[in-house]
């Protein structure tokens, strides 16, 4: 198996599903890997972790820490991995921060750039090894045995993917149990705690807002804050919005509305003309519509 764009192809034999009636040849899954290119980061810790990670494309979707570890150690004994970071394939489950989008209180609190997996594309994974040496050893050994696997025509048990997922009826009942909650203590606690946190944040924001109110600046002005205002950021947003062209336009329109429309004779004449034109336009558009229907053979009664 040749490399693709610098990626090494790793064949993985999937266990035959118990339900396929005919014993078909084993199904082979293909993963692709290469050493993770180190992102330009000032964070020494991140750089270190990246340096001892392998970048995988298309690991099996149920790959977790346990079965990946098992699989790797079977392939190359002595391999020690410390974590598997994965972006799932499938329907995009992108995160929407409703808090940030609906409230000004939380703005500026979002954390970013702290994790290795943050910028992983869908369907890829980073497998972190215990150290760089271990990783290099793994890669070298693996590259050596893959051709042997290819020769064995898929009978090599080494490449068999270990499954450890709960599947079938049990899996779905578990999921249902998670969705239908009878023991509500935990939930209750979680909800109360979040609400307390929210109130705290809200009060903090309120205080921050009230602080400048009592301040008198050099010119003797104080800041006036409406009782509806909740955050400082809100004031800034409002100021920006008022300067936008849209609002100005609206004001202009308001003034225009007050003009009379049927005062001068020319206005009445124009209006009549316009009505006539409208009538004609409608007639023309009707004609066009009928013409269109005709071209679609709408008028064949049988």
């Amino acid at each position: 198996m040749s490399d693709i764009k610098g990626f090494t192809t790793l064949p993985i034999i999937l266990p035959p599903s118990n339900s396929t009636s005919v014993k078909a040849s084993p199904v082979v899954h293909y993963a692709f890997f290469k050493k993770h290119s180190v992102p330009n980061s000032n964070d020494a810790d991140l750089a270190d972790r990246a340096a001892r990670s392998l970048f995988f494309v298309n690991l099996p979707s149920d790959a977790g820490f346990n079965n990946t570890k098992k699989f790797f150690t079977t392939l190359v004994p002595g391999t020690i991995i410390s974590s598997v970071l994965k972006k799932k394939l499938g329907v995009q489950e992108d995160f929407i921060n409703f808090t940030k989008l609906t409230s000004e209180i939380a703005s500026g609190e979002a954390e970013s750039g702290k994790n290795l997996e943050d910028n992983l594309p869908n369907g890829t994974a980073l497998v972190e090894f215990v150290d760089k040496k271990n990783m290099n050893n793994f890669v070298a050994q693996l590259k050596a045995i893959i051709p042997a696997h290819d020769a064995a025509k898929g009978e090599n048990q080494l490449f068999c993917w270990p499954v450890d997922d709960v599947v079938g009826t049990k899996r779905y009942q578990q999921r249902l149990h998670q969705a239908y909650i009878t023991e509500t203590d935990k939930l209750q606690q979680y909800i109360s705690q979040s609400l307390v946190n929210f109130t705290r944040k809200e009060t903090a924001a309120q205080e921050a807002l009230q602080a400048p109110v009592n301040l008198v600046d050099e010119d003797g002005f104080t800041l006036v804050v409406s009782s509806h205002r909740k955050t400082k950021q809100g004031i800034l947003n409002a100021v920006n919005a008022a300067q936008s062209s849209k609002v100005q336009e609206e004001v202009k329109n308001k003034l225009k509305k007050k003009e009379k429309e049927d005062f001068y004779r020319y206005q009445i004449r124009e209006k009549k003309k316009r009505e006539m034109q409208d009538l004609l336009d409608k007639f023309k558009s009707d004609q066009a519509r009928v013409e269109d229907m005709k071209s679609r053979k709408r008028f064949r009664p049988y």
């Binding site: 693709i4 999937l14 266990p15 599903s17 396929t20 899954h29 149920d62 599947v167 079938g168």
Partner: peptide
């Protein structure tokens, strides 16, 4: 060169694996 295709069999295998005892025949 550098070309790939959808691995339908592997996808189906994954689906069936999730089904476990729910699946009788494919």
């Amino acid at each position: 060169k550098d070309e790939v295709a959808m691995n339908k069999k592997a996808i189906l295998n994954e689906m069936v694996r999730l089904g476990g005892d729910l699946v009788v025949k494919v």
